[in-house]
């Protein structure tokens, strides 16, 4: 009999929580540490996710598809990459916010290459992060890193976008 993948996954999750919860009365230090890690990262997410998703929801209803298509869609030029890099600079949290935002952009008609630039840039261009970086590693370090990585991100995104566009690739709703 084939065991459904979902059932395996669900029992793994249940097992994980049983293990973590049992670790506290049992005084099992690794399990307690894992539980604390889980909790502290969940709290971190809770501070960011509600706002991020409210903003995504408002973007869905207020921003017109034609607007996004015109500036970030198939007919748009190199400037479109500049717009999304600026958007990425203000993205909060981490990639777990950037993925749903890319999906929202895709639904509004942004082209794939621009979406991949957005994803790459939200990894490397978030402004609060750059401030931290420059203060600990020096401005020279940040400047070189950005000057080298941004062109590479844009070029590889254009390549990947073209490659997938030809194959009629779709970003799907998570789930």
């Amino acid at each position: 009999m084939k065991v459904p993948y979902k059932a395996v996954k669900l029992s793994a999750v249940v097992l994980y929580f049983a293990f973590v919860l049992a670790s506290f009365p049992a005084g099992f230090e690794p399990g307690q540490q894992i539980g604390k890690n889980f909790l502290s990262f969940s709290l971190e997410l809770l501070k960011i996710l509600p706002s991020a998703f409210v903003l995504i929801g408002l973007f869905e209803v207020w921003v017109k598809k034609e607007k996004v298509e015109k500036h970030l869609g198939k007919g748009s030029g190199m400037l479109s990459h500049v717009w999304v890099i600026l958007l990425a600079g203000t993205t909060v949290g981490g990639m777990y916010v950037a993925f749903p935002v890319s999906y929202a952009l895709f639904r509004k008609g942004a082209k794939l290459s621009v979406i991949f630039t957005y994803l790459g840039a939200s990894a490397i261009c978030r402004i609060p992060m750059i401030i931290f970086e420059a203060s600990f590693m020096g401005i020279k370090f940040s400047v070189i890193r950005l000057l080298v990585s941004i062109p590479l991100v844009v070029l590889s995104s254009i390549w990947l976008g073209h490659y997938l566009e030809k194959r009629h690739y779709q970003i799907v709703e998570g789930g």
Partner: peptide
């Protein structure tokens, strides 16, 4: 818009949970 936000969020909730579990173990 809020309904939409809730729908997108609830769709990726299982994936978020998987990520959190993986993070908690790897950080240990």
């Amino acid at each position: 818009g809020m309904k939409m936000a809730l729908k997108i969020l609830s769709n990726i909730l299982p994936a978020l949970l998987t990520m959190l579990i993986a993070i908690s173990i790897v950080l240990y």
